[in-house]
Structure formats: C-alpha cells, structure tokens
Amino acid sequence: MMETLAHFALLLVGAALVNNILLTRFIGLCPFFGVSNAMETSWGMAGAVLFVMTLASTATWVFWNWLLVPLGVGEFLYIPAFILVIASLVQFVEMYLRKAAPSLYRSLGIFLPLITTNCAVLATATEAVKPGFFKMNLAYGFGFGEAVVYTVGVALGFGFALITFAALRERLEVAPVPDVMRGTPMAFITAGLLSLGYVGLSGLFGL
C-alpha cells in the first residue's frame, strides 16, 4: 500500500516539476507565450488545461486499450485516432458545460476550443497511453491509475510554470529593456532563465 502511494507521489512530482512540460520539454509553448500577458487569463488557461488533459488521457487510454490494440491497428492509426477523440471530446464537453454549468463555462469556456489543437494535450495523451513514448523507461506502458496521475501531474506543472511566467512578465512591462529586445525577445530570455531553475531539478529522485 505504502509502496503504491510512494510510486504515485513520485510520478506526480516527476511529471509536474522534474520533467516540467513547458520549461524542460518545450511542449505547449504557443499558449505559454500567447496567454501569459495577463495574470487572469493564465489562471483560466491553467484550469482548462488540467480539466481537458485529464479527460483526454482517460478517453484515449480507454480507446487505445479497448479498441485499437484488440483490433491490431494501433501502430499506424494512433495519430488520427487520438486527435479525433480529443477534438470531439472537447466539443461535447463544451456543449455540455454551456447547458449544465453556465458559470463554469463562463470561466473556462473560451479556453476549451483553444486547447483542442494544443500539442501539450496530444503529447501527454500519447505518452500516458502508448508504450514507448514515455521518456523515463522506454518500453513501459502505464496502467489506468498511473496514466491519470501522470496526466494530472503534467497539467499541474503546466499551470505552475504558466502562472509564474505571467507574474514575471507583468514586472517586465515596466523594466528598462533595450529597444531591440523589447517585447517577445525579452520574454524568451526570461523564459530561458526560468527554465535554468528547472534544469537544477533534473535527476532528482532518479527520474
């Protein structure tokens, strides 16, 4: 029992901090630079990513293990299959939320279609589901519980990095930056320095 708990805790921390999806693996950078202008949208985006990513990995895990593998078509159909599952799932969730929970829809709604084609969701779903894509041990496939915990960890790491970066960018607005570097170039260098901190964590817990 304890061992299982420790395994899950390590998986969570490893996915969130040691292998942070944004700053040490560069997955999902478009929203990282796109929405980090304002603190409020960053919170919304972080929440929406947590929600969609968990749903997407759950759905693709079921789809992969119960449909693609028994039919023997996983190797060459996984790309179109996963992206279609994720896209249609997000569409249904959006329609359901608009009817059933309007207040939640107002805070998360505008971000939902934005994430359909976000590489972070597809990458996490692929890694959590298809054996061979998970970096740490190569031919290892996740069980259902592990896949969900791993996905939640990745999404938490995404939100944490996004919100930190948004806070830094608000201060950057008033900083005296050389004219050539103003705006996006400076944002990249800030992200580089932030990522330097995460590199310090690599190798922790043997992950």
């Binding site: 700053l23 040490t24 050539v180 570097m181 170039p185 990249f188 260098i189 580089g192 990522s195 590199v199």
Partner: peptide, 16 residues
C-alpha cells in the same frame, strides 16, 4: 533547455 530560449530570443531580436 535554457540555451534554446536564450539563443532564440537573440535570433528574434536580430530578425526584427
């Protein structure tokens, strides 16, 4: 990873 961000930042500034 940090090197990619920083070098790319300078490339964006140069291209601009």
């Amino acid at each position: 990873f940090p090197g990619a961000f920083i070098i790319f930042g300078f490339m964006v500034a140069g291209a601009g």
